[in-house]
Nucleic acid binder design. Structure first.
Length: 216
DNA sequence: ACACGGATACTA
DNA sequence: AGTATCCGTGTC
């Protein structure tokens, strides 16, 4: 994958879900006046992953069938929090990437107004927090993140993309929770939960790909 | 430690 | 219509 500064296209989301989850770390999430670097993601595969919505929710598989890669999959969790996922499709294995944490870069006054909290480290340090901070509405569910540059993912700055990545187990799920499919920017203070440093050493993006047998 | 809260997909 | 489950957050 060749990284050129600019909005990510459907091509980016037409690879293995874990490859997309790794490469989204360091990219920027853009939503109107708000912008931030993605520092934590989780990968979910439509097949062989009991934690993926396609495993129990009939509508989820229909969603995969009916939408192109790069479509936003937004759902309500615990009756309170809206969680932003991206549909990954067309790369041999379909699935989703859950955006779990973002380091705010622009639009912080808007985020503080919606979050009612002052500390920048906690504005977007969780999947429910970031959708609230960015003001991403549930009505965007089913819309493409590849169509409008004001509501999209951008490739991050080179120095940001060069930072090490940490692989850790996924968080907050009861099924298939042991899979190390959570990816964090090494050393980030903006993640939802810090990884256990000893068991999960930081590694290069290429090394993370190699760990899962992925090809760039 | 616990309360909060609603969509989805079951059973009947 | 009733029940079980769910990829979380804030406050106690």
């Amino acid at each position: 994958m060749c990284f050129v500064r600019g909005m990510l296209t459907s091509e980016f989301f037409s690879r293995h879900p874990l490859a997309c989850a790794i490469d989204l770390v360091g990219c920027e999430l853009v939503w109107e006046h708000c912008r931030g670097v993605v520092v934590e993601t989780e990968g979910y595969t439509a097949l062989g992953d009991e934690a993926c919505h396609t495993f129990l929710r009939r509508g989820a598989q229909r969603f995969v069938d009916d939408h192109p890669p790069g479509t936003a999959y937004i759902y309500l969790n615990y009756g309170i929090h809206w969680l932003l996922n991206v549909l990954i499709k067309g790369g041999g294995m379909d699935g989703f990437v859950l955006v779990r944490a973002v380091e705010p870069m622009a639009g912080l006054p808007f985020m503080r107004e919606r979050r009612k909290l002052p500390k920048a480290e906690q504005l977007c340090s969780g999947p429910g927090k970031l959708t609230q901070a960015f003001g991403i509405p549930a009505t965007f569910h089913g819309s493409s993140l590849c169509r409008d540059a004001r509501k999209a993912f951008d490739v991050g700055a080179p120095e940001r993309m060069a930072r090490a990545v940490v692989c850790d187990v996924r968080i907050g799920i009861s099924r298939a929770a042991e899979l190390p499919w959570r990816f964090l920017e090494a050393g980030s203070a903006f993640v939802s939960r810090r990884p256990t440093a000893a068991a999960n050493p930081a590694q290069s993006r290429a090394a993370a790909f190699a760990r899962f047998g992925l090809t760039p």
